[in-house]
Design a protein around this nucleic acid. Sequence first.
DNA 1: ACGCTTCCGTCGGCCAGCCGACACTCCTGC
DNA 2: GCAGGAGTGTCGGCTGGCCGACGGAAGCGT
Lengths: 218, 218
Amino acid sequence: MVMAMVASHPDPLAGFPAGFLDGFTSREVAKGQLLATPGQALNQVFIVRSGRLRVYLASDARELSLAILEPGDIFTTHTPTFVRGLEPASLWVIGIREFAAKLAGAPGVAPLMMKVLGRILDNAVSLVEDLAFRDVPARLARFLVRQAARRGEQGPEGCLLPLDLGTEDIACLLGTTRQSVSSLINQWQREDLLSRRGRRALLIHDLPALAARSLAPG
Amino acid sequence: MVMAMVASHPDPLAGFPAGFLDGFTSREVAKGQLLATPGQALNQVFIVRSGRLRVYLASDARELSLAILEPGDIFTTHTPTFVRGLEPASLWVIGIREFAAKLAGAPGVAPLMMKVLGRILDNAVSLVEDLAFRDVPARLARFLVRQAARRGEQGPEGCLLPLDLGTEDIACLLGTTRQSVSSLINQWQREDLLSRRGRRALLIHDLPALAARSLAPG
DNA sequence: ACGCTTCCGTCGGCCAGCCGACACTCCTGC
DNA sequence: GCAGGAGTGTCGGCTGGCCGACGGAAGCGT
């Protein structure tokens, strides 16, 4: 699930025409620094050059992460979300009007934007689907399966998953609580579906079984 | 809440340059007809000319409406959602590739697309926010307040709201059940916040009080 | 080593809201 | 009229999962 409103490329700049970055300014973001908040409509578009950022919603008592932005991801501050540096990061930034002008000027980029748009929609819809239809076990299972497909490395004992996220962070991505995630992981560990490998990595032992649990209950 | 992934204009074609519709084909949709489903990636963009369409997600046991499309709204079949005619409707349709080409050719349209994109994101995020942070009373209250701002007509007794939706339909928009909506409305009726006016309309008597209940609990 | 801090595991209580069931009211066509 | 169907109101039981609490384990600075 999740990973959300973001277009992700293995190579940070694949797909952009040479010189497309002209007119962007560079910007550094410190760890924990708040880059955007709802309300303040900055109207900027940015592309992540290095580091990771967290996009999230917040109510008085809770936070829900929409996405972890990684190098190559493109996003805009023109959404009612918080964006915060998860670690030191650097960005290319441009005003949204100038960005639109660039799009008009570079014909090849419009289709690319459509792709980005499509992916953003897919991810948003996927998030809504999770929150509305799936219970917590299914959400967690789906998250792990997707991460395995994305970042997992196949080994003799199973698929090694470097999450780089704590229990709390995962809960936040799934719209649930630390406790629920914790107890589920340990339950599955007892069932030999997976096992912890150090502090922030998992070894998936039975991927198909996990996939089965990622389906909506019923 | 909701109303969702859609850009809505009071005037169906405001903002589009003259001749922009060249290349679109016309299409009729019957009441109840399924226009798009997840899986089948039709890759079309369409604009609603007349009638209403429902955009929704479905699991085995439940449905969740993302939006009711109305004349002037623009949408794409390239999302994992169902789109179904709510009443007889007619559309302008074009392939997504051709649409992208038009964007590249008509420089003035790209900024318009950015606006549309922004609105789509806002609405999607708003939906997620509701599902994650607000309880059912808050969701319903917010829905009614927004509808009042959108379609309500001020009268001597309060604000008259022609919903054109049954209890079940509203529940579907809010991601809850018929029963919950029903009991809430009647509870509020007892508190004199509102009253039923015929089968599918409400008279809002105390809009501020409703607005107060639309905030996240806590 | 040691404290200190941060993170993780587990338990029990509690409650919003889903579900099934059923009666009632309203429209509609014969 | 008067069936029949669709939509509506209401109740009680049941449960997923949030919350608070607390103890244990792992990292880290000195």
